[in-house]
């Protein structure tokens, strides 16, 4: 049971980093990307190859994989940033298809469908992280650094310019902001962070194959951001918790095994639909709705801040 929870917590840390990084694009730069699993995959493969052939020192691997993924994100985005919204979504689907094909067929780089096995355990300043708890601490530490870094970034001139762009692009242009440049930097940062998540994942599972980096997963990541609340710091983390933990909780349903799988899917899907219907701004807005609700209730009952 403990190891089950440790496993979920480690995967949750990785998912949070992915959701936060995608949120830079979706929530702040206004790019609806459904190719985030591509960056995740590139980070994982680059990290795995480096760990297998050169060094498994986590910081070094991350320092190699993150810029590589950022560069891929930059190069893939340059030609398509002039298109926005639904057109970008379609272009991203195209990229995802190409990338999946590369992951499947590039034997020497990715191991093809068979994947890359034998990824050594990560070392952290020379200490081999074999204990799952130590690895959980590393993953959680990376997630914490990630949110602290994003918080700083969003309070910087760059972050404000991104938010301005999101709120009103025409006004941002009139005030001297350059949307394409800003979006490219945002995408590169998002790519680099997804690469970090990829490295964490590759070390964690020690075997990777293309099935972890599919369009399905890209869509799921987008769902995390939107379900949690795009354009907020906490929202994507809530979305990641929901998407990662909720299905795990459904495992504890006391129903016959034969119907457990389909039932889980139906409940999971239905809850997502309900969330979007009743909380279109995401789980993040739950607090606000709750305050509003209790405020109304208090007013109805004639207690609290009523001016009567």
């Amino acid at each position: 049971m403990i190891s089950y929870i440790e496993n979920i917590a480690t995967m949750l840390s990785i998912s949070m980093i992915l959701a936060w990084s995608l949120n830079i694009m979706v929530g702040y730069a206004g790019i609806f990307s459904v190719m985030h699993a591509v960056f995740y995959g590139v980070g994982a493969y680059v990290g795995a190859q480096y760990a297998i052939h050169v060094s498994a020192e986590f910081i070094v691997v991350a320092a190699v994989a993150m810029p590589a993924t950022a560069a891929v994100a930059f190069l893939l985005t340059v030609p398509v940033l002039r298109v926005r919204e639904e057109y970008f979504v379609v272009a991203a689907v195209g990229y995802q298809m190409v990338a999946t094909t590369v992951f499947i067929t590039w034997q020497s780089g990715t191991g093809g469908m068979g994947g890359l096995a034998g990824i050594p355990p990560a070392t952290f300043f020379g200490v081999m992280l074999i204990d799952p708890r130590a690895y959980l601490a590393l993953s959680a530490g990376c997630a914490v650094l990630c949110i602290l870094g994003l918080n700083l970034l969003l309070r910087s001139p760059f972050g404000r310019a991104l938010k301005a762009l999101r709120d009103d692009e025409t006004a941002a242009i009139a005030l001297g902001k350059r949307p394409i440049r800003l979006r490219l930097v945002a995408t590169s940062i998002a790519g680099g962070l997804a690469g970090l998540a990829g490295v964490l994942y590759a070390f964690y599972v020690s075997y990777i194959n293309p099935e972890s980096f599919t369009l399905d997963y890209s869509v799921l990541l987008l769902a995390m951001v939107i379900i949690g609340g795009a354009g907020t710091l906490i929202g994507p983390a809530l979305g990641a918790i929901f998407i990662t933990v909720f299905p795990a909780l459904l495992n504890f349903l006391e129903v016959p095994n034969s119907i457990l799988g389909p039932l889980q899917q139906v409940i999971y899907g239905s809850v997502i639909v309900m969330l979007m219907l009743f909380m279109p701004d995401g789980l993040y807005s739950a607090g606000r709705l709750l305050r509003k609700g209790t405020g109304k209730l208090a007013a109805t009952l004639g207690v609290g801040g009523s001016s009567q």
Binding site: P157, R160, A161, K163, A164, R166, D167, D168, T170, A171, A172, A174, L175, G176, K177, G231
Partner: peptide, 15 residues
Amino acid sequence: RLFLDMTVFENVLVS
């Protein structure tokens, strides 16, 4: 065309 989700201070600072 204000940046509606940003504060008054941020609206001016960003410009």
